[in-house]
Structure formats: structure tokens, C-alpha cells
Design a protein around this nucleic acid. Structure first.
Lengths: 101, 101
DNA sequence: TTTAGACTTGACTTATTTAGGTCAAATCTA
DNA sequence: TAGATTTGACCTAAATAAGTCAAGTCTAAA
């Protein structure tokens, strides 16, 4: 599930048109269309608005937002999967380091 | 293990000084110092040179390079870990999609 | 079968960020 | 006190973010 897919899903399942949602977010509908197909990214502040409109947890939108960004970086990389593992490892190392103090 | 750590490790275990390695890479030693502490990143082409100098697999350096970059993105994020999972999921979804065709 | 409304796409823009450094001064280490 | 390393301030070019807008396409229904 990408952020674009999720937004489209939320919008459609609430019977809203792109134009409506776009206007709530104060962006053009062309731009929203691209957001839903992950050709463009929403500003992070917009995520909060989306969260409120559809009453959907911000943290999940946030995870999708960052995750989709990470995916854009690794998707054409041979070492993409390993790179994700490296990042994960560094992250959990940092976590245990901080826990130690 | 970060890329900076790995480079430092390779350099030190071959008894080389920063100045020497820096000159082989045609960068300043101040810059290399920052690379080793992950404050700056090497150009990707430099990775190939490093790989040759220390006879260390390029693919691993590459994974560390991308991984450290990903880590920089997620390290201060609450949803960092989940975001990595999202990216991983998207990546494996894409893989199976491609395999289907 | 045409036409309206929803959506997609391509070309373009401008402002901000990031990449990839340099250099000199400060610090650390034997 | 020399040589190795680190740090901070600074720089420029290139990339990315965050859009707009008009033209094109797709789909139901009159």
C-alpha cells in the first residue's frame, strides 16, 4: 500500500471527488491526481488535514509518506533490500544505545 | 555498521592515513574525516575506487551507502521503523509483480 | 453518439534543499 | 610539539519540492 493508494481509497470510499478533496487541501486537482499515483508528494502538513477529513490515524499516513519516499530511493537499486536492512539495523542500534543512557 | 565506520575500518586496518586515502580519492582530508563520521557522503563513483583500493566488495559498500542515506531520513522519525517496513513491503510487492510478467 | 464531468498527463516554473566540496583553526595523541 | 584528525564556516551547482495550467483521455448516461 502506497500513500497515493491510501488517499485514493479514503477519498473514494467516502464518495468524494478529486476536485473536492483538492480544494479542501488548497491544491489543484491535477496535482492531487499525481499524488494519488505517487508521481508527486503531498506536503507533510497536508497529511494532518487528510487525517482529519477522513478520520484516519495520522501516524499511519506518516509511515506511508516516509515509506513511499524510501521506496522511491531503493526501487531501482540492486542493493535496495539490503540497504533497507542496513538502515533498520542502524536504527535499532541507535535505539539500544539510547536505552543504555 | 555505517559506511563511514566501514571506510575508517578498512583504512585503518590497512595502516593508511586519511591524507593518503583522501589524495587517492582526490578529495581533501577534512572532507574524508567527515565522511568517516557520516557528516558527509562520498560520491558514488568514489565507492568503486574504495572498493578497489581495499579489495572489498562494491555491492556491500553500495548497500551501506544507500542504507546510511535511508537511516538519515528515518532516524528522527517516530514512524521510522514502520516506514522502513512499508518500503520493504512495497519493494517485495513490486518484485512479485515483475515476476508475474 | 455526443457530451459533460472526472481524471490523467506533459510541459513548465520558482524556491528551497542537498551534494559535494574547500580551507583554516582547534584539538587530540604519542 | 609535530603530525593526524576533527570541526565550523563557507561556497556553488545541481536536484528536488511543490506546485500550476491546459490539453487530452475515459466513461456514463441522455
Amino acid at each position: 500500500m502506497t500513500l497515493g493508494q491510501k488517499i485514493k481509497e479514503l477519498r473514494e470510499s467516502s464518495g468524494m471527488f478529486q476536485r473536492e478533496l483538492a480544494s479542501k487541501l488548497e491544491i489543484g486537482d491535477g496535482f492531487l491526481s499525481k499524488v494519488e499515483s505517487n508521481q508527486k508528494t503531498l506536503k507533510r502538513e497536508h497529511l494532518l488535514t487528510v487525517s482529519k477529513i477522513f478520520n484516519y490515524p495520522f501516524s499511519e499516513l506518516n509511515a506511508l509518506w516516509i515509506g513511499t519516499k524510501l521506496y522511491e530511493i531503493v526501487k531501482d537499486e540492486q542493493e535496495g533490500f539490503n540497504a533497507l536492512k542496513v538502515a533498520e539495523e542502524q536504527l535499532s542500534y541507535e535505539k539500544t544505545e539510547n536505552a543504555r543512557n
